[in-house]
Design a protein around this nucleic acid. Structure first.
Lengths: 246, 246
DNA sequence: CGGTTGATTGATGGTTGTCAATAAGCGTGG
DNA sequence: CCACGCTTATTGACAACCATCAATCAACCG
């Protein structure tokens, strides 16, 4: 099933017509990207909204001196860049981590969809609000949590998000990034990420081998990471926007 | 002039009818809040959108052990809580710093406005995107910048934002918060905020006396803070949404 | 004018960063 | 199948930045 529909249906019921439009949009213009390349760079003008179909990407900002902060991960089913509607130029970059397949939805097509359907507009606005909620939790993560709390929190977030799109199997998930990239997301050094993962491994909370994370004790890991899934808003909350008669 | 109109006009031209509606909305239900009290707390269900007319407020998240992270400052002209439309319950709190006067715009009224006017919908969506852009920069701030860079960056952000709403006078602005609150926003201790401010003072980049910050050398301060105002999107960028015939 | 809050400074310690070396993994090609 | 080279992971030693604790000072206010 179309992951975009799946995602939006988590908070609003769509009519058959809505779904038909979305189906059409997501089928248009598929593209593949290598790992570690930019989908769009800071300063460029966004032209399309990208829907990740498979693989991982991230938003990041980089200083001239090399320091880099990853501010969000994109997982399958995520919409990359609703900024396209509103921002003249990107204030950050979007790059791949693992190989990515995405659907490019043109600005014009999406604009027509929105003009014709205010429920879709609100659904996408909602998506933007969730993005902001995620950013807020990341500010808290790098601002207040210790290294081990940050790592645990990120592992929990990824678990919940991937489970919501059916990518958790046998209590674990594919983790196609390096410890160095994790470090850039957590605001700590790669060396310290490594030490911290060892701690979690010794505590028998998780393992990470050959690109696959296994969560051995989710409640304990959530406790270490001071994790509360409320900011993900994964439960259906938008009943007020349900299409009539569905 | 109505600060909400002023704000929205920074990115889209509004028709006279738009303005009349907004004028009406902002005039409704004024409320005053003491300093250091919650406007809405985590877990509550938001009922209104709040437009700050005067004073400072902030979004924050707090752990049970007392650690707190401020994730954004609200300045006059800011819309507090568009989450009201979409989130069943708040995943963070909004509290005042200085005494605040705000206009409560009811959910129903705003909903009617949006239903009748897709340009307004997009204008408010844009506001949400700017909020997210701000959050991203804050992730970078606490994730990558050193203490002195963080302090300098925050002072620059406040300068630019306050200037945009006409609250910068004689190269400075009112700063109605404590160093401890600044510490909560920057993810460093209050003691270290104090030391860092001293450094900036000795370098003759700024002063902060009796609730008023004066920026002595903005370019130098921006350089220290690795500050780039692009994420604020303060220049008019939404010409594509201009009302026809204005 | 006492009392409270916030600012300031010093001393000390801990978490984390940096540097460096080694080991492990992984793809490529002989 | 193994050798090779590259990237990534892992570990140790040391240093730095920042937190914490504590004391003093300044500002504000009823």
């Amino acid at each position: 099933m179309n992951p975009l529909i799946k995602k939006l249906e988590r908070f609003t019921r769509l009519s058959d017509e809505d779904k038909r439009i979305l189906q059409h949009a997501a089928a248009s213009r598929l593209r593949n990207f290598e790992p570690r390349c930019d989908i769009i760079s800071e300063g460029e003008t966004p032209r399309d909204v990208n829907l990740i179909l498979s693989g991982w990407a991230c938003r990041y900002k980089q200083f001239e001196d090399g320091r880099r902060q990853i501010v969000a991960f994109f997982l399958p089913g995520d919409l990359c860049d609703l900024n396209v509607f509103l921002l003249r130029e990107m204030d950050h970059s979007i790059g791949t981590l693992a190989p990515v397949t995405l659907a490019q939805i043109s600005r014009d097509l999406l604009q027509r969809m929105l003009d014709a359907n205010s429920r879709l507009t609100q659904a996408l606005w909602w998506e933007t609000l969730i993005t902001a909620a995620n950013h807020r939790e990341w500010v808290v993560n790098v601002g207040q949590r210790t290294a081990i709390e940050r790592v645990a929190h990120l592992l929990c977030e990824l678990f919940h998000r991937l489970r919501a799109v059916g990518l958790v199997r046998e209590g674990g998930y594919e983790m196609p990034i390096t410890q160095s990239e994790m470090a850039d997301a957590l605001g700590i050094s790669a060396v310290h990420v490594n030490r911290t993962l060892r701690e979690l491994r010794i505590a028998e909370l998780m393992t990470w081998k050959s690109g696959r994370v296994t969560i051995l004790d989710l409640p304990a890991l959530e406790e270490v990471g001071l994790f509360n899934p409320n900011y993900l808003h994964l439960d259906r909350e938008g009943q007020q926007f349900d299409a009539p008669g569905t």
